[in-house]
């Protein structure tokens, strides 16, 4: 019988190894799987490459993982935002690497990775410093730059609800990178508020089919990153 439920967040991330590439969903705090990230802080895996749109805020969630010196490199589109201080500080000291990727190129690289596409051409970034050193080609009248698909060892994703097969639905703009990250990771680990019986989710409304999901963790009342930051909390 298929049952993707893990006993805990700690058990779900226990095999994350040093040097792994991890995709982490979220656009700011919306869709950020804060409890799974905290489990990864406890797990202690180091020298990670993290693919995520931002770099977290305050000293919780992704920012806590970075502050705990577990991340060697970030692949992201917008590494600074309100209340982000951990990444900028380490970056200025040269203690963390950054691969800056335009947001749409980041999304498409993840989508391509999940679809088995090793590289593709895009007009985004042509004529800018972000195209430096990349192969380019002209199709028709227009120039394009080649970008590589991205795959990961693990994805940590937040969704709203799952069934035991791993079919997922999301909540509003918290969906953001979740569906494509599930497709591009060897092991997709998803935290949801609720797991229902197979058949309770309308097949017409499922956003991520269960084939892309490996492990499910219930976090009934997920913490809100901005609230933790407001309270000046840190993790651990």
């Amino acid at each position: 019988m298929i049952d993707k439920r893990a006993v805990s967040a700690a058990a779900a991330v226990a095999d994350v190894h040093d040097g792994a590439t991890i995709m982490i969903s979220g656009f700011g705090e919306a869709g950020s799987p804060i409890e799974l990230i905290h489990a990864l802080v406890d797990c202690g895996a180091k020298n990670l490459t993290v693919v995520s749109n931002n770099t977290g805020s305050g000293r919780v969630g992704l920012a806590a993982l970075i502050a705990n010196r577990q991340v060697a490199k970030m692949i992201c589109s917008y590494p600074r935002s309100a209340n982000s201080m951990v990444f900028p500080e380490l970056y200025r000291k040269g203690e963390i690497k950054l691969e800056l990727v335009p947001q749409g190129t980041l999304a498409e690289r993840i989508r391509a990775g999940g679809a088995g596409i090793p590289a593709f051409y895009t007009a985004t970034s042509v004529g800018t410093v972000l195209a430096n050193g990349k192969e380019s080609r002209t199709f028709g009248e227009r120039d394009y730059v080649m970008e590589h698909g991205l795959i990961a060892d693990f994805a940590l994703v937040k969704a709203e609800k799952a069934d035991r097969h791993g079919n997922l639905i999301y909540n509003k703009t918290a969906r953001n990178f979740g569906p494509i990250m599930c497709t591009a990771a060897k092991v997709a680990i998803v935290q949801v508020k609720e797991i229902v019986e197979a058949g309770e989710l309308d097949p017409e409304e499922i956003v991520t089919p269960g084939i892309f999901v490996n492990r499910l963790v219930i976090v009934a009342k997920p913490a809100q990153e901005s609230q933790l930051v407001k309270e000046d909390r840190s993790y651990p």
């Binding site: 589109s77 900028p88 950054l98 800056l100 335009p102 749409g104 190129t105 985004t124 970034s125 972000l130």
Partner: peptide
């Protein structure tokens, strides 16, 4: 040199 580079979706928007 000390700025944290951050691009977001701007390059995608102007290209597409």
């Amino acid at each position: 040199p000390d700025a944290i580079p951050a691009v977001g979706g701007a390059m995608d928007l102007v290209a597409g």
